Amino acid sequence: MGFKLLSKLLVYLTASIMAIASPLAFSVDSSGEYPTVSEIPVGEVRLYQIADGVWSHIATQSFDGAVYPSNGLIVRDGDELLLIDTAWGAKNTAALLAEIEKQIGLPVTRAVSTHFHDDRVGGVDVLRAAGVATYASPSTRRLAEVEGNEIPTHSLEGLSSSGDAVRFGPVELFYPGAAHSTDNLIVYVPSASVLYGGCAIYELSRTSAGNVADADLAEWPTSIERIQQHYPEAQFVIPGHGLPGGLDLLKHTTNVVKAHTNRSVVE
């Protein structure tokens, strides 16, 4: 069995187990497998329904001669939608809004960016022009300005110390501490036991640490421990890039980060 097929099978099995364990909360999309990078042309966006009122959005972007996937989250909030992270750029984010209108038909009224990198804030200006209120932590807003990236308009308070959590509509926002970046936030959907790890969490097929220019490698494993301790009931975990899975993604990420750190020390 090929690795790609095995990865998709694991996603399907995880979703099936969740649907059985929580039949009222989960209505997993039966329309197909989780979209992969090879299936999404740059400039297009796919939506994948995880649970009743919960979707991931998947886009792709060219970077350094390669094409990478990027995940975000959409959560229903009454007759409105909360968006977590842009679709990595203005063109993708405009396509995301169009796809949401086509498939869901509810307005996106608020959006949260989970850290300051372009795959999370690139497209904020498109959201703002569409009347979406954009939010991020003060740290993310400051770092985005320093980096020359787009800056969300509103500040999220109460997320300055490791372990801080605040309720934001249908989700809980959690600051686990520094990891992929010093400002990275985690998003949890309690009604569906869905954990969105953003770039602080890796997919299972990833074996290298990737972009760690703004990471705190020493603190990252401790931050992941905080996530595990705060959300032990999480059933569906979405990484910032690639295929979702279960809580095993947290341990896998820790292993990859520690291996990278150990290699760096040896070198």
Rank of each mutant, 00 (worst) to 15 (best):
A129M: 11
D118I: 11
I74C: 03
S38W: 12
D164G: 12
P232M: 14
V237D: 01
E233P: 09
A133Y: 15
S223P: 03
N71D: 03
N71Y: 01
R120M: 08
F3W: 08
P176T: 01
K258W: 09
A215E: 12
V54D: 01
I100C: 03
V42S: 10
S193T: 05
A15G: 10
T134V: 12
G197T: 11
T86S: 15
E101K: 08
V75P: 01
Q228E: 13
W55E: 00
P176A: 12
S31W: 11
A25Q: 06
Y48N: 11
V67P: 08
D119V: 01
P138V: 06
R110D: 15
S161F: 15
A129V: 11
Y196C: 02
S223V: 07
F236P: 03
S193A: 10
S264D: 14
V54K: 03
V28C: 06
L6I: 05
V67N: 07
S191C: 02
G72I: 00
E157R: 15
V42R: 08
V54S: 04
V108D: 02
A90F: 15
L204H: 09
Y68P: 04
V67G: 06
Y202C: 06
V166Q: 10
A165I: 09
V171N: 02
I84W: 01
E80N: 14
V189G: 01
Q229T: 10
T134F: 02
Q229W: 11
R128N: 04
Y188A: 12
S155Q: 13
S139E: 09
W88H: 00
A215S: 11
L143Y: 12
T86V: 15
L159Y: 02
L247A: 06
Y34E: 13
E203R: 01
S155P: 10
P232Q: 11
H241L: 00
S22M: 06
S62F: 07
E80V: 15
V237G: 01
A15E: 05
F116S: 15
E267C: 03
S160Y: 14
G32C: 09
R128S: 10
L73W: 01
A19R: 06
A209D: 09
N262S: 08
K91E: 13
S62K: 11
A51E: 08
E225Q: 15
D79Y: 15
G169Q: 03
W55F: 12
I20D: 04
Y175C: 02
F236L: 05
A19E: 05
N92T: 15
K91Q: 13
G72Y: 02
P35L: 13
G43A: 10
T114N: 00
L10P: 07
E150M: 15
A130Y: 09
P176H: 02
I20L: 14
A21P: 04
A25S: 06
S193D: 13
L250C: 13
I186E: 01
A192I: 14
E99V: 13
G65D: 05
F168G: 02
P41D: 12
P221H: 15
I17R: 04
T254G: 09
V266I: 04
D79A: 12
E145Y: 07
T253S: 13
I50D: 02
I186W: 01
F236V: 07
Q61R: 06
V126I: 06
E233T: 08
K4Y: 15
G32T: 12
F3S: 05
L204F: 06
Y175P: 02
A192Y: 06
I20P: 15
S191T: 05
F174Q: 08
H180Q: 02
G2P: 05
A95Y: 14
R226T: 05
S38N: 09
V67H: 05
P23E: 05
A192P: 14
L106R: 11
V75M: 07
G123L: 03
L173K: 00
E219W: 13
S155G: 08
G240L: 02
P190Q: 05
Y34T: 07
T60P: 06
P239Q: 02
E39I: 10
G105D: 15
A259M: 05
R167S: 06
K251H: 04
S193M: 08
I186N: 03
T114P: 00
A165V: 12
T207C: 06
V28Y: 15
V121A: 03
D125P: 03
I104S: 04
L6C: 07
A90T: 06
I50N: 15
T261M: 09
I186M: 13
H241E: 00
I40R: 09
P138L: 13
A200V: 07
S160H: 10
A111V: 07
A165L: 11
V124Q: 04
G158F: 15
F174H: 15
S22R: 07
V146Y: 13
A25N: 05
K91G: 13
A66Q: 07
I227E: 01
G78T: 13
L5H: 04
A179K: 02
S162T: 12
K91H: 12
Y196V: 10
E150Q: 13
A133M: 15
H57P: 01
R120Y: 01
F26K: 07
A192E: 12
Y175Q: 04
S70R: 01
E157T: 13
V212N: 12
R142Q: 12
W88D: 00
S62D: 06
V11P: 09
T207E: 12
R167F: 14
Y68K: 05
L185S: 02
